[in-house]
């Protein structure tokens, strides 16, 4: 970047000491945030001999040995079954939470619901208690229903956890839609359900995307409940990761390789969706 740049007003803006300080501060902060990620990625492709060298070796031979053992060797079955579990559970709970949540939000916005405001607050209040407080009751419930170590159990739990977030965020988006647009659709011949799916939902797309990303991240990263409810066949990636620390010590190379593979899907999902986040879609709807 050059030392002088055009500001919004078109005037030449000279970089002053304060600007440099700000950029330096930002750079330090970004480095601080990204350094652990760098360590994960670099360790995953280091030969075992380089992993513990001190000072850390910045130049090393890149190897995919660790990925091979993570995929096929580790824990007997490798990472794939758990990766697939995570993807199924995250996808299902996200679709359910956003689907049900947007319907609930629409109902609360457009219909006269008895004690609607109280209901709305109640939905948020389900998130007040820390998840750890629910662990034992949840475990007992799932045990009685015979749902321990099933995909269904985690999908149900994550869906209910994400619902409140979805309802709260999407309701604001629905409220921003001018009511006349829906009235016009009513007169044009659409049923309530068609108005919801063909007019209201497309207009709250930014909200759907935002809540999808947040819901997916929560479901993907959740460890506490997953580790209690699932043991083996339905265990998610975080549960699998925790199993690395065993009696034989930690194998850092494959561990980091699993970490990278665990980050990639949610990262790709977020980046893809984020491109569709068109701001101000409803702009120009009226007036």
């Amino acid at each position: 970047m050059s030392a002088a740049t055009l500001s919004d007003t078109g005037a030449v803006h000279r970089f002053r000491f304060g600007d440099y300080a700000r950029y330096l501060g930002a750079a330090v902060f970004v480095g601080f945030c990204l350094f652990p990620f760098y360590m994960i990625v670099s360790t995953s492709v280091k030969p075992e001999s380089d992993i513990f060298s001190f000072p850390p070796s910045w130049v090393f031979d890149i190897t995919f040995e660790n990925y091979h053992s993570a995929l096929f060797v580790f824990g007997g079955s490798g990472v794939l079954p758990f990766l697939i579990n995570s993807i199924i559970i995250t996808a299902a709970s996200t679709v359910l939470a956003v689907g049900l949540g947007s319907m609930a939000a629409y109902g609360l916005t457009r219909f006269k619901v008895v004690a609607g405001d109280h209901l709305f607050f109640f939905i948020l209040s389900t998130r007040f208690a820390p998840p750890v407080a629910f662990i034992v009751p949840l475990y007992l419930m799932m045990q009685r229903f015979g749902l321990l170590d099933t995909h269904f159990a985690l999908v149900a739990i994550y869906t209910s956890m994400n619902l409140s977030l979805v309802v709260w965020v999407i309701r604001g988006f629905f409220e921003a839609i001018p009511i006349e647009i829906e009235e016009a659709a009513q007169i044009d011949g659409y049923s309530r359900w068609q108005i919801f799916t063909k007019v209201a939902l497309p207009l709250v797309k930014p909200g759907l995307i935002t809540t999808s990303i947040l819901s997916a991240i929560l479901a993907w990263n959740e460890f506490l409940i997953a580790t209690v409810i699932t043991q083996s066949s339905s265990a998610t990636l975080p549960v699998y990761l925790s199993s690395f620390s065993g009696s034989m010590g930690l194998e850092w190379g494959p561990y980091m390789a699993v970490g990278v593979m665990g980050v990639l899907p949610i990262m790709i999902f977020t980046l893809v969706l984020q491109r569709h986040l068109v701001r101000g879609l409803t702009f120009g709807a009226v007036r």
């Binding site: 647009i181 016009a184 659709a185 007169i187 044009d188 709807a285 009226v286």
Partner: peptide, 30 residues
């Protein structure tokens, strides 16, 4: 929708996510 009417609103109430063709076609599509 069963009253066989059409309405024009003060603030136009067009569908912002559809182009003009689809806005105009809406009553027929529905």
């Amino acid at each position: 929708r069963e009253r066989d009417i059409a309405m024009v609103f003060e603030n136009y109430a067009l569908y912002p996510h559809l182009n003009v063709f689809n806005n105009v076609a809406m009553p027929l599509v529905a």
